[in-house]
């Protein structure tokens, strides 16, 4: 017993080192996405409120930009109001309303935590279960897509943004309607990659890339970015397109969480058919 004690005391530096590293590695290796966000979620209430007060300072400096964006968005919304349409079109709109009903609802939210310089980034928003937010809802900003809600606590939620190694979002080239997948290479937060676009499709630099509507998460036609560069490997049947994101993820502060009223029904149907989930 005494020998053991002297051994422990003599080597306490090394033993403590090993213990602390093991603790750290346990913390990291709960790296299955779910567990990691659960640990972070339990601290969300603390870090969330600290982050929020810091971001309210940042928000103040960004007010000018936000105002400008809001004004632009107002202009777009005003242009679809009934008084800016002719009589004939109004009749059409009312018909459409009764046939389709509402599919998507938009809930405004504020960014209270954001990273862009890691290979796996996170965004935290100030809306949670109490505000009706659930897992797998889409998050968009006035300029384009942002990500998908991953974990929700009472008043906050974390978002798996486009800037994450596991983010795969179904997209299409607007001009040719060719489907592909948006991914991120983990390096430059202004640029992503669109893969799986077949080479027979005509794609030009500057073409717009939008969401495809194949997912039950994102509405169709949300802006993603524009084609920056076209790359094709010899003997490969698919393009690798480099995309300039339309959103500056480093400066987002106002976003909308999108709720799809038909998601549960579509999910159930897909589960019955055994289809894979499309993001």
């Amino acid at each position: 017993m005494r020998n053991l004690l002297t051994f422990l005391i003599r080597h306490h530096f090394f033993i403590l080192f090993v213990i602390l590293e093991i603790i750290s590695i346990i913390l990291i290796s709960n790296h299955s996405y779910y567990q990691r966000t659960t640990i972070i979620n339990s601290t969300n209430q603390v870090t969330g409120s600290i982050n929020r007060s810091f971001h309210s300072i940042r928000d103040y400096f960004g007010l000018r930009k936000v105002n400008q964006k809001l004004a632009e968005e107002n202009a777009i919304l005003r242009s679809v109001l009934s008084d800016s349409l002719t009589v004939g079109e109004i009749r059409e709109m009312t018909v459409k309303d009764t046939v389709y009903g509402q599919v998507y609802q938009y809930i405004p939210a504020k960014v209270v935590g954001n990273t862009v310089n890691r290979s796996d980034n996170f965004i935290m928003l100030n809306q949670g279960i109490l505000q009706g937010i659930r897992k797998d809802m889409a998050v968009i900003s006035p300029a384009g897509i942002v990500g998908i809600v991953k974990e929700v606590s009472r008043n906050f939620c974390t978002v798996l943004p486009v800037l994450h190694s596991q983010s795969k979002i179904s997209a299409k080239v607007k001009k040719s309607d060719q489907l592909g997948t948006i991914q991120w290479d983990g390096f430059n937060y202004r640029r992503g990659t669109l893969t799986d676009v077949p080479t027979h499709a005509v794609v030009a630099i500057g073409d717009t890339v939008i969401t495809s509507g194949m997912s039950q998460i994102f509405p169709e036609g949300i802006m993603i970015g524009t084609v920056h560069d076209i790359d094709k490997d010899e003997g490969d049947n698919f393009y690798t397109l480099s995309i300039d994101f339309s959103v500056d993820y480093n400066s987002i502060s106002q976003v909308y969480i999108v709720r799809n009223f038909y998601k549960e029904e579509l999910d159930r149907l897909r589960a019955l058919t055994g289809m894979e989930e499309v993001q």
């Binding site: 590293e21 750290s24 890691r118």
Partner: peptide, 28 residues
């Protein structure tokens, strides 16, 4: 004390981790 060096290094890494969504990495 050597043990305190390790422990305080762990703590400062852990606190930075808490706020940057990278639990354990800075600590390690």
């Amino acid at each position: 004390p050597k043990w305190l060096q390790l422990l305080s290094a762990f703590l400062i890494g852990f606190f930075v981790d808490l706020f940057s969504h990278s639990l354990g990495m800075n600590a390690a």
